[in-house]
Simulated assay, not measured.
Amino acid sequence: MSGMLAGKVAVVTGAGGGIGRGIALAMAAAGAKVVVNDIGASLAGEGTGAGPAQQVADEIIKAGGQAVPNTDSVATRVTANNIIETAVQTFGRIDIVVNNAGNLRDRVFHKMSEEEWTQVIDVHLNGTFYVSRAAANYYREQESGAFVHMTSTSGLIGNFGQANYSAAKLGIAALSKSIALDMARYHVRSNCIAPFAWSRMTSSIPANTDEEKARVTKLQKMEANKIAPMAVYLGSDRASEVTGQIFGVRANEIMLFSQPRPIRSVHMSTGWTPEAIAEIAAPAMKHHFMALERSPDAIDWDPI
C-alpha cells in the first residue's frame, strides 16, 4: 500500500473507538501496518475483551491494509512492553507510537479519592511513559521514530473537576518535550496533540447546567476522525523537522500552543524580603498574572 506512511509500522493505543480508531484507520490508509491496541473495557474500567480492537483491525484488513489487534493494558511496564513487542514480532519493526489510551474519573478535587487519582495517572501519564519507553530502545537502534502523544487543554489551560486528568495531561506535555530533547540525537521526534472531539470518553462529561449542556453540544459537533490527519502527518517523514511541539486540532482548525516562558522579571540588588515582594515584586508582576481560566474561557470562538 502506498502513501505517506508506506513501509512504516504504527502502534495506536486506545484504538478500539473514537479518536484512536480514526487514527488507526487513517494510518493504515496512508500505508502503515498497524497494531490496534484496546483493552475493550467500559468507561468505568470494567471488563476486557478483544472485540473493539479486533473490529478495527478487521476494518483495516477488509480495506486492503495490514493490522493486528492487541488487548494489553498501557498501565504497567510488562503489558506496555507486550504492545510494542506485538508490532516487532508481527511486522518486524516499530516506527510510530500514538499514545491515545485514556480514561476519566472526574471529581472535584477536595472529594477525589486516591483510587480516582491513581487510575487516571496510571493510564494517561504512566501509560504514555511505559509504551514510549518500550519503543525507545528500538528507535535508538534504528535511529528513527516518532511519538505522538495526546495531551488536553484541561491540563494546558485548566478545567473543573479534573485534577487527576489535568495533571496527567500536562505531565504528558512535559514528558514529550523531554523525550524530544533526549532522543533528538537519534533522529526521534516527539509531539503532542490536544484534541477537541466527541468520543466515548468525552461522552461522560456532565451536562447538568445550561453551561455544561452548551459545552457538550459544541463538542458533539467535533468529529473524532478530524484528529487523524495531524497524527498521520506527525508520524510521517514529512514532519522530520517537527519535534517538541503541542498542536490543537478542533474540527477543521489547527492550533499551535505556546509553552511556558518568563514573561516578566523584577530585580532587587540587595535581595528580596517577603515584605519587599509584597510591596514591589508582586504589584509589578500582577498585570501579567494568568487569569483563572478553563479551556472554554481561553478558546472562546466557535469551531468552523
Score class of each variant (00 low, 15 high):
residue 6 A to N: 07
residue 6 A to C: 04
residue 6 A to P: 00
residue 7 G to V: 05
residue 10 A to S: 08
residue 10 A to W: 00
residue 10 A to M: 00
residue 12 V to L: 04
residue 13 T to F: 00
residue 14 G to Y: 13
residue 15 A to W: 07
residue 16 G to Q: 04
residue 16 G to D: 06
residue 17 G to N: 15
residue 19 I to D: 04
residue 20 G to F: 03
residue 21 R to G: 01
residue 23 I to H: 02
residue 24 A to I: 08
residue 25 L to N: 04
residue 25 L to E: 02
residue 27 M to V: 09
residue 27 M to T: 09
residue 27 M to N: 02
residue 27 M to P: 07
residue 29 A to S: 09
residue 29 A to M: 10
residue 30 A to Q: 08
residue 31 G to M: 02
residue 32 A to R: 09
residue 34 V to P: 01
residue 34 V to L: 11
residue 34 V to T: 01
residue 35 V to N: 02
residue 37 N to G: 09
residue 38 D to F: 04
residue 38 D to G: 09
residue 40 G to K: 01
residue 41 A to I: 06
residue 42 S to G: 10
residue 43 L to W: 12
residue 46 E to G: 09
residue 46 E to T: 13
residue 48 T to A: 13
residue 51 G to I: 13
residue 54 Q to N: 11
residue 54 Q to G: 05
residue 55 Q to S: 14
residue 56 V to T: 12
residue 58 D to T: 11
residue 59 E to I: 06
residue 60 I to Q: 03
residue 61 I to D: 09
residue 62 K to H: 10
residue 63 A to W: 00
residue 63 A to Q: 09
residue 64 G to Y: 13
residue 64 G to F: 04
residue 65 G to I: 10
residue 66 Q to L: 15
residue 66 Q to G: 07
residue 66 Q to F: 14
residue 67 A to N: 03
residue 67 A to V: 02
residue 68 V to S: 02
residue 70 N to F: 13
residue 70 N to I: 03
residue 70 N to A: 03
residue 72 D to G: 06
residue 72 D to I: 02
residue 72 D to W: 03
residue 74 V to L: 04
residue 74 V to A: 05
residue 75 A to Y: 14
residue 76 T to L: 11
residue 76 T to N: 15
residue 77 R to W: 08
residue 78 V to Q: 15
residue 78 V to G: 15
residue 79 T to C: 05
residue 83 I to L: 02
residue 84 I to A: 15
residue 84 I to Q: 10
residue 86 T to N: 13
residue 87 A to D: 01
residue 88 V to T: 14
residue 90 T to Y: 00
residue 90 T to V: 01
residue 90 T to F: 00
residue 90 T to A: 05
residue 91 F to V: 02
residue 95 D to T: 07
residue 96 I to M: 08
residue 98 V to N: 02
residue 98 V to I: 10
residue 99 N to T: 08
residue 100 N to D: 05
residue 102 G to T: 01
residue 104 L to Y: 03
residue 105 R to L: 04
residue 106 D to H: 08
residue 106 D to T: 07
residue 106 D to W: 03
residue 107 R to C: 08
residue 107 R to E: 10
residue 107 R to P: 01
residue 109 F to W: 12
residue 113 S to W: 14
residue 113 S to R: 14
residue 113 S to Q: 12
residue 114 E to I: 14
